[in-house]
Simulated assay, not measured.
Amino acid sequence: MQSNKLRMAIRATAAAAIFGVAGQAGAVSFDAGGWNTSVYGYARLNAVYDIDEDVGSTTQSGNFSMINTGAAENNEATGYFDADAVQSRIGVKTTSPEGVTFNIEGDFRNGTLRLRHGYGSYNGVLAGQTWSNYNSFVGNTATLDFDSLPGTAGYQGRTAQLRYTTGALSISAEDPQSSLYGDAAVQAAKKDGMPTFTIRLEDKAGGMSYSAAALAHQVGYDTGTNDESAFGFGAFVAAKMQITDMIDIHGALNYSDGANSYLWRSGDNYFGSDAYIGANGDVETIAGYAGSIGTGINLGGGRSINIGYGMTTMDWDDAEDDGLAVGGETETNSAIMANYKWTPVKNVMMGVEYQYLKTEQVNGDDGDANRLMFAAQYNF
């Protein structure tokens, strides 16, 4: 009897569903010994029909590196269907009577359970793995594609860090993400000599939410005889404006110089090279630019339409001038996504999305892909 009552109580406390890949799903919560605990997650199906080229990766997200370019576009695989449920996730979040918060969360994107979040926080001090402080969801378009649009704000991933937050301001020292262009020998010599340092301001005023952040990190190499490095920098701004009760517009702008590892969906698919080794052995940084813009339209009755465009581009001119053969490297990735999402009942979301992806190389070769995606998500 008590077991049935407990199950009924837990079900009665189920929170509302969250739409979009960034947010925490609705949770089932309970108190025990002064500890407030939530168990949350969702089960999700992603299915995709690649109209003119097979470019789906895990979670059926569109993968820019799988788009054929140049003459290879004539060898496209057409009419390709695939589906998986590996985006499904589960997490536990608990707060002690003293106000210490713990969060452990995982999903199955790699085919096995992988850690998404694992951290503790108290009085504004957070230690562990969670979203990078050089990140914001304020200007993001709600897409069904798990990897979303190029050019969204900052590093759209999670990393180990030590962070302090006071009010709208937060600073962090994080596990560095860096990438040095070159062959296997260069990759073997690449080193990270210091943490990545970030600072972010995120707040809202009236109908506008906004975020701005900056980072500095080191990218370098050590062969045993040569030890060289350079500093890379990045910055972004993001905002969302509520135009009416139904419509909002949102977007982000990014700049990096030696920090393309934090420029979302640059390079082959996720992160571009930060720097290369010049003829004199110095580390030369590579600049990058990115942006995204979108709108969300609330149709009422649990229905919405979301439309977004995003792009990233990297400046390889200096590398070319220095004699590097970078003609086949990715210069620009861009995407348009439009979806219709429907909540037929609380904690259930279904949606369809059209995606157009395009990639361009330094030598001028390009390629594109059209896709249709369906998703069904059941939150708890």
Rank of each mutant, 00 (worst) to 15 (best):
A189D: 14
N269R: 03
V100C: 03
A325D: 15
D54G: 06
D145S: 01
D248T: 03
A319G: 01
Y119P: 01
A189S: 14
M337Q: 15
Y255A: 09
V100E: 08
F19L: 13
E98T: 13
V39S: 08
Q361T: 15
T69M: 10
E329W: 08
T152P: 03
T312N: 13
K190R: 09
E76R: 14
G328K: 11
L113T: 05
G99T: 08
M241P: 00
A85L: 07
T198M: 10
A212K: 06
F146K: 03
L372A: 15
G20F: 03
N75G: 10
G367Y: 04
Y181L: 14
A32Y: 14
M337E: 13
T13V: 03
L113H: 01
G301H: 08
V138S: 01
D318L: 13
A369E: 11
A212N: 03
W316H: 13
N260S: 07
E353D: 09
S211T: 07
A185V: 05
T58R: 15
G154L: 10
S172R: 01
T112E: 14
Q187E: 11
N140G: 08
V48Y: 01
A77S: 09
I67R: 10
E174I: 12
R200Y: 02
L253N: 06
E174V: 09
F19K: 10
G41S: 11
D227S: 11
E228N: 01
T198E: 04
P176A: 08
H250G: 10
A214S: 14
K358G: 09
N74K: 15
R114C: 01
F19M: 00
G62D: 15
G232T: 05
Y42H: 12
P176R: 12
T332R: 12
A9L: 09
S304T: 06
M337L: 15
T330N: 14
D192W: 00
M246P: 04
W131D: 02
G118E: 05
I249P: 00
A239Y: 06
G120C: 13
D54M: 01
S209K: 06
T196H: 09
I104F: 11
V237N: 04
R7Q: 13
M246N: 13
G220I: 10
G151S: 03
D203H: 07
A168I: 05
D82M: 00
T58E: 10
F102P: 12
L263N: 14
N68P: 07
Y80F: 07
A205S: 12
A72L: 06
Y164Q: 05
A160N: 04
S178H: 00
D245E: 11
L149H: 06
